[in-house]
Design a protein around this nucleic acid. Structure first.
Lengths: 110, 110
DNA sequence: CTCCTATATTCGCATATTAGCATATAACGA
DNA sequence: TCGTTATATGCTAATATGCGAATATAGGAG
C-alpha cells in the first residue's frame, strides 16, 4: 500500500470506477453470473459500444477479468469483495434514507 | 428504498461524493474530530474556498452536518458508518494491491 | 479468402467537475 | 456603526466524462 496522500488518489480512482449507475448494474448482474458483452447489452437495453466501454473501465480498474469464448468475450468478477462492499453500501443507504424519511415526516408534523 | 434502477442512481451519486481525493482526506480527518473550515484548509494546505466547496458537497450528500461557533462553522460527521465503509475499502484495496504486486513479480520471474 | 457475428475503438459533441481568483455574506468585537 | 475574521458564492478556464454513430478489429464458419 503506497503511503501518504497517494492512498487517497488510489481510493478515489477506485470509487470513481464504481460511481456510475450502469457500472453498478453491470456489477450486480456479474454477481450472479459471468456474461458476454452482448448479453449485457441486451439485458440492460444499452447499445453495445457503451456496454463495452464500461466493461473496459471495470476491467482497467481491476474489478473484472475476461475470457475469450469463440467470438464472444466473457466478463466475470475478479473477486467477490467489491460486490460485498457494494452490498454494505446498500445497507448503509437503506438506513440513511430511512432516517431521512423520518426526519422529513417529523418536519411535516411540526 | 426506491426501487428499480433508481437505486443505482442514488448509489452512484453517493459514491461520486466519495470519489475525490480531497474529500477522502477531509473525511479521514473528520473521523478523528470535528473541525472548522479554516482548520481544514490549514491542515490540508488547500485554499479556503476549495475546502468550503468540498465540505459543501459532503454536506449536500448527507455525510456531514454543520454547527455555527461564533464566526466559524464547525463540520462534523453525520454518522460513523461512512468512515467504516471507507475503512473496509482500505482493507479491500490493501489486499487487491498486494495481489497485483505478486502477479507482477510472477510475471517478472517467468 | 470471404462473409458474418461479436467486440473494441475512435471521433465529435455536449455536459460536468474542478481549482483559483475575486467578491459577497455572516458573526463578532471595539 | 466600522473593521476584522470566517465562510460561502460567482465566475472562468482547463480538464474530464459521457454518449451515439461510424469504423476498426478479431474470431469462426463455410
Amino acid at each position: 500500500m503506497p503511503e501518504g496522500n497517494q492512498v487517497h488518489l488510489i481510493k478515489a480512482a477506485f470509487l470513481k470506477v464504481l460511481a456510475h449507475p450502469l457500472r453498478l448494474r453491470i456489477l450486480e448482474l456479474l454477481g450472479q453470473k459471468e456474461q458476454s458483452v452482448g448479453q449485457f447489452a441486451q439485458m440492460l437495453s444499452v447499445d453495445q459500444p457503451t456496454v463495452s466501454r464500461h466493461l473496459g473501465i471495470l476491467k482497467q480498474g481491476g474489478l473484472v477479468t475476461t475470457r475469450q469464448d469463440g467470438a464472444s468475450v466473457i466478463y466475470r468478477l475478479q473477486n467477490e469483495e467489491t460486490v460485498q462492499l457494494l452490498q454494505q453500501l446498500t445497507e448503509l443507504l437503506k438506513r440513511k434514507l430511512q432516517v431521512d424519511q423520518e426526519l422529513l415526516k417529523s418536519v411535516e408534523e411540526s
